[in-house]
Amino acid sequence: MALPDLSLSLQFARFKGVERHRAALPRHSVARWIRHALDADGEITVRLVDADEGQQLNREFRGKDYATNVLTFDYAQSPVVMADLVLCAPVVAREAKEQRKTLAAHYAHLLVHGTLHAQGWDHETGEADAEEMEAREIEILAGLGIRNPY
């Protein structure tokens, strides 16, 4: 089965330590992770930001005054998935260390997670939805050779 087509824009804000994050996110890997999570062709922008920008976006769009690991802004789900995925690099790095994961593996998980959100999956609508989304993430990541993130 062929994977969906993807038009990818990969952006890195200027912040301390950006080189480490850039190294963990080669374009071909980002595209592979996202394409495996897509059910249709996609046009997706991935942007890495610092804690200040991450907090500002989370406060402005979700009403939560802290930086979170990934924010998904979905604009269309059919026939083409169109979304922006914003990852807060310091949060992702801290979580990867706490969870004893490589930075790349944690980014892979969050990009799959965000891509599923862009297609209407939602873990905040109930326990059954959360379990279904988690199972789908585990399945996708296993297919990519990445161990269960939970």
Rank of each mutant, 00 (worst) to 15 (best):
M1L: 13
A2P: 14
D5A: 13
S7Q: 15
S7K: 15
L8G: 12
L10H: 01
Q11F: 09
F12N: 02
F12V: 01
K16F: 11
G17S: 06
V18P: 00
E19M: 11
R20L: 05
R20D: 12
H21I: 14
R22D: 05
A23H: 03
A24D: 02
A24R: 04
L25C: 11
L25H: 04
P26V: 06
P26S: 05
R27V: 13
S29W: 14
A31F: 10
A31H: 01
A31K: 07
W33Y: 14
H36P: 01
A37Y: 02
A37D: 04
G42W: 08
G42S: 11
E43I: 09
E43C: 14
E43F: 04
I44R: 07
T45H: 11
T45V: 12
R47N: 10
R47C: 14
L48S: 10
D52T: 13
E53W: 09
E53C: 04
G54T: 03
G54F: 00
Q56P: 00
L57F: 06
L57K: 02
G63H: 11
G63D: 10
D65T: 06
D65Q: 10
D65W: 07
Y66C: 07
Y66E: 13
A67S: 05
A67H: 03
N69A: 10
T72I: 04
D74I: 00
Y75K: 14
Y75D: 07
A76T: 06
Q77R: 14
Q77S: 08
S78M: 12
P79D: 04
V80S: 05
M82K: 15
A83E: 05
D84L: 04
L85E: 08
L85M: 11
L87A: 07
C88W: 02
R94M: 11
R94C: 01
E95S: 12
E95Y: 03
K97Y: 00
E98I: 07
Q99A: 15
Q99T: 03
R100Y: 08
R100M: 10
T102M: 08
T102D: 06
A104W: 03
A105G: 07
A105H: 14
A105P: 04
A108P: 02
A108N: 00
A108Y: 03
L110V: 08
V112P: 09
V112G: 10
G114H: 06
G114F: 07
G114Q: 01
H117S: 08
H117T: 00
A118E: 04
G120C: 06
G120N: 03
G120A: 08
W121P: 10
W121L: 05
D122I: 06
H123A: 11
T125F: 03
T125E: 12
G126A: 09
E127V: 12
E127L: 12
A128C: 01
E131D: 10
E131L: 15
E134M: 10
R136S: 03
R136P: 00
R136T: 11
I138V: 15
E139T: 09
L141W: 13
A142Q: 09
G143C: 04
L144F: 10
I146W: 03
I146R: 13
R147P: 08
N148W: 10
